[in-house]
Nucleic acid binder design. Sequence first.
DNA 1: ATGAAAGCGCTAACAT
DNA 2: ATGTTAGCGCTTTCAT
Lengths: 327, 327
Amino acid sequence: MPTIKDVAKLAGVSIATVSNTLNGGRYVSPPLRSAVLSAVRSLGYVPNGVARSLRRRHTQTLGFLVPDITNPFFSGLVKAVERAARKQGYQVLLSSSEENPELEFDLTLALASRQVDGLIAVPTGDSTEYLEHLGLPVVLLDRIGRSESLDRIGVNNAQAAQTGTEYLLAQGHRRILLLVSTLELANIRERVEGYRRALEAAHLPYHPEWVVACGREANSVEAAITAIQTHRPTALFAATNRLSLIAVRAIRHLRLAFPEEISLLGFDDFEWSTLLEPYLTTVVQPLEAMGSTALELLLARIKDNDHPPQTLLLPCELAVRQSVARA
Amino acid sequence: MPTIKDVAKLAGVSIATVSNTLNGGRYVSPPLRSAVLSAVRSLGYVPNGVARSLRRRHTQTLGFLVPDITNPFFSGLVKAVERAARKQGYQVLLSSSEENPELEFDLTLALASRQVDGLIAVPTGDSTEYLEHLGLPVVLLDRIGRSESLDRIGVNNAQAAQTGTEYLLAQGHRRILLLVSTLELANIRERVEGYRRALEAAHLPYHPEWVVACGREANSVEAAITAIQTHRPTALFAATNRLSLIAVRAIRHLRLAFPEEISLLGFDDFEWSTLLEPYLTTVVQPLEAMGSTALELLLARIKDNDHPPQTLLLPCELAVRQSVARA
DNA sequence: ATGAAAGCGCTAACAT
DNA sequence: ATGTTAGCGCTTTCAT
């Protein structure tokens, strides 16, 4: 690979002139300028970004840490963040922690060592403490934990779940099972809280057993099946996209008429859900806005670290389609 | 951010000793070693990977270029590649070209400028020429084009499509529509070829009109609907995961009994396809093997660039489920 | 308007 | 067994 020296030699100028014509640092006379340009072309010179970053002391690069690139919710977020970053002249280094906290930690360190200018993180758990002492601008996205010292972009989970539950209630459902992955995630706990609030507002009892923890594995459908058999709900509220899948499998396993005998409300919208018939009614999260707002906050913090951390909770919407019938 | 100098000063040693205890380069006596380690801890020192890479002249980093991170086929590939890379001590920089050749080119240059040690690419089109002159080890994955000078890992598309078609034929189907995105992709053309070969082997006519180009957008269902109406097939072969979605929508739009009146065979398996009932029978590509083999070839080429390029075509399997009925 | 040279933080060759 | 130093490729200050 040719270096700036090779270009300078071939063009018969100093390396400073090469640098300046390429970066527009200072005026370069047309003759030298074109000599440089043609040398660049003929050598196929590409500036060494590593050397450049070392010297400039920033990389124009952001880290983005997600739990699972394979989940359409996160890959949607990735797309949104990348697009927004690109517009601002930043590249993003994506790391997938596979929901593994140790791997997450290692990846974060790797990102930091790569000298990313900032980091957007969707942590695997709610233990975000180490992110606060990273010495790097960090914004938490989606799983925003309880950190008061970091910028955070999330969604009003309680509100969204309450709205969803209220819709189910309005359709006449009284026995509603809430399918959750794990209560370890604050997001999930908040959704439970929203569900509970909707029930209370309607003066209906809240049954803790109706909140069914199905685990984080895609194939753990047994818990859902058992819960449906014992509690005989008329509607299921799946707190996560994966849980919609589990709900569907359980419904089929039990040969229930869908949505006549049992309705389903999902959380997180995703393209492939249209394979399901009837079309899935879901609470939809504003992926695009979440991504672009996270980027804004991060860029603001990179530019100036001397302002108090912000927390933004974006609203969700309910997309009414076909999977919820009147009870 | 503290540097190696700060650590050396605090530990009362030379920077060489810091470097050596951290990298295990040469023997460091226990007392100095522990002095360094505690200085590292108390400063929260993280080595500057940019400086390290500049000096070492490699980055232990691989680039991976995919057309669309949002497509489960590619995100599956990403997972496989990342896992394999991690095992070998490499990090991967993921870039999503969004099926845009110009963006792809820019991203590739950005990757090169970041000094990745090698690149795995799933190009947007078949124009891979610029990749051959990157001056960087490159392996082509999935969309392997016709480059003879690069290592390539693909799948035997023709064979796979032929097997799929033969299965449809064996189930008694004679009017089989092949749904494709665009004939611009060599992969797709090969799948058409496999379909044609299966027909010929069965002494059945090949109707070019039965190969329906639906475009690359997810919502272009009209072409499929029209084709089904005019050709009255008993089976659909969707050449791509997105096309399964389109096929399903078309089937529903026409209110055909599925799979009794019309069968569906997919290509590319993906988790969310289980939302579909009956479960989708598909040709499945060996994602894990594709990813890990691509990585192996790339690492081999990084280690030693003086061997002829290889092309490996991996076999696909047919996962028989429920969406194909007997005709 | 351009060149020379310092230095970003690190590793490795050279010294002792 | 450890310290000193050159230099990776670039940007930028200083000099002319």
